[in-house]
């Protein structure tokens, strides 16, 4: 279980998260919802240790990670699939996947799971990542995260800016990774329908604070109307 306790996070002078406390249960999908600019991406970056400064406790199965540098958090089993995917354009598909393997404790290799989930990638291992379409790059970013052999996957708007015919594929893969592989997933998602379909729990952010959290059933239309819908 990943527990955040009174986490504050900063970018330079701007205070992006305020006293955020949150529990991410093991083996489940926790959806993070909220408007643009409410701190969802910052929350994931803070868990990874990629913001300029943060305070508070970030506890993974009894170990406090808040003082650890980013690479130790990755090696502790947290993998990050960022917004915009951030694959390396002049690395081949294989090199991009293997890059994730630096966080793995069991050696650097392309996991068998990648072959099962993403046949396109296994057929195009030597292609430069930059030549892939948005959807393929998203698959690649997920494959890179899987190469770390993680316990927890942080996904930042995994279906944003992707051609519609691939969106559902990626959504199903996310659900499958949780259901079949037992991965805990933190899913930042603007698409409430998918958050409801995939999530077991949710947390609603507004202005860097958690304004609601609980089992996904309690993510009511009323809550959404109040905090997301304009």
């Amino acid at each position: 279980m990943l527990k955040l306790d009174k986490v504050n996070s900063f970018y330079g002078r701007s205070h992006a998260l305020h006293d955020l406390s949150l529990s991410i249960p093991k083996g489940q999908i926790t959806a993070i919802v909220g408007r643009n600019g409410t701190g969802k991406t910052t929350l994931l970056k803070t868990i990874m240790g990629l913001t300029v400064k943060s305070t508070g406790a970030i506890d993974l199965d009894g170990t406090d990670l808040s003082a650890q540098p980013t690479f130790r958090r990755a090696r502790a089993g947290i993998a990050y699939v960022p917004q915009g995917r951030q694959i390396i354009p002049d690395f081949t598909v294989r090199e991009n996947i293997l890059m994730g393997g630096f966080a793995s404790t069991s050696g650097r290799q392309v996991p068998a799971l990648v072959g099962a989930l993403f046949p396109y990638l296994t057929e195009n291992m030597e292609r430069p990542g930059g030549l892939l379409s948005g959807g393929q790059q998203q698959q690649l970013a997920i494959a890179r995260a899987l190469a770390a052999n993680p316990q927890i996957l942080l996904l930042d708007e995994p279906t944003e800016g992707i051609q519609p015919n691939i969106v559902e594929d990626i959504q199903n893969i996310i659900i499958r990774l949780n259901r079949d592989e037992g991965l805990s997933i933190v899913l930042v998602e603007q698409n409430v329908a998918f958050a409801r379909r995939a999530g077991h729990h949710f947390a609603m952010l507004e202005k860097g604070r958690a304004v609601a959290a609980g089992p996904i059933d309690s993510l009511t239309d009323e809550l959404i109307h109040q905090h997301i819908a304009v």
């Binding site: 990874m48 240790g49 990629l50 540098p69 980013t70 690479f71 990755a74 090696r75 993998a79 990050y80 960022p82 951030q86 390396i88 354009p89 002049d90 690395f91 890059m99 994730g100 393997g101 630096f102 966080a103 793995s104 890179r144 770390a148």
Partner: peptide, 12 residues
């Protein structure tokens, strides 16, 4: 290419 992503991939 991308120091933040490198760190997030476990690179020291």
């Amino acid at each position: 290419r991308n120091p933040d992503m490198a760190a997030a991939c476990g690179i020291d």
